[in-house]
């Protein structure tokens, strides 16, 4: 599918989701309640067949925290960026996609470690790099007087 077809198809199938063409890849913003079902469909729909999650990252925006999934279909050679937002900064929870793409298990560990997003149904959520005494360094409100020198 071309990018336009992809955006068209997805915005018809998921009226709640906001799809648009980004700089490089088509982007779609999915409500977090829909996330898991939406992702499952992306993988299992033979016309979409997004089988390769090549990047998963978390971004802390001023008003919400976002997880960005970069997806590729090795069969159809099309790409999609899926974004899921969550406003709650205290109990930040999203659904895991590690049952869909096993690689997500460890990317989610990393995101939990650095941004403090918990993932529901994750098989083994743990801090990957830092020990438990740390906060979540990639959050913009992170302050560490010992390790970080502000200029």
């Amino acid at each position: 599918m071309t990018n336009e077809q992809l955006i068209d198809h997805l915005s018809k199938a998921y009226p709640d989701a906001v799809a648009k063409q980004g700089n490089q890849y088509p982007e779609i913003n999915v409500p977090k309640e829909l996330l898991h079902a939406f992702m499952l469909n992306l993988k299992s729909d033979p016309n979409l067949a997004f089988d390769y999650l090549f990047c998963q990252s978390g971004v802390d925006y001023p008003t919400f925290i976002q997880v960005v999934y970069h997806l590729e279909s090795t069969k159809h050679k099309h790409y999609l960026v899926v974004k899921a937002n969550t406003e709650d900064r205290v109990t930040t929870v999203l659904d895991t996609v590690s049952d869909i793409w096993p690689t997500a298990e460890f990317h989610e560990d990393e995101i939990f470690d650095l941004l403090g997003i918990k993932f529901n149904n994750h098989p083994h959520l743990r801090r990957l790099f830092l020990d438990d005494t740390w906060g979540f360094p990639l959050r913009k409100d992170f302050h560490d007087d010992i390790h970080v020198v502000e200029r």
Binding site: F54, C55, S57, V59, D60, H70, T103, E105, F106, H107, E110, L138
Partner: peptide, 13 residues
């Protein structure tokens, strides 16, 4: 925000 998707990370696990 900068994220590096490193090859070793996915390969290791």
């Amino acid at each position: 925000r900068v994220k590096f998707r490193s090859p070793g990370f996915s390969n290791l696990f």
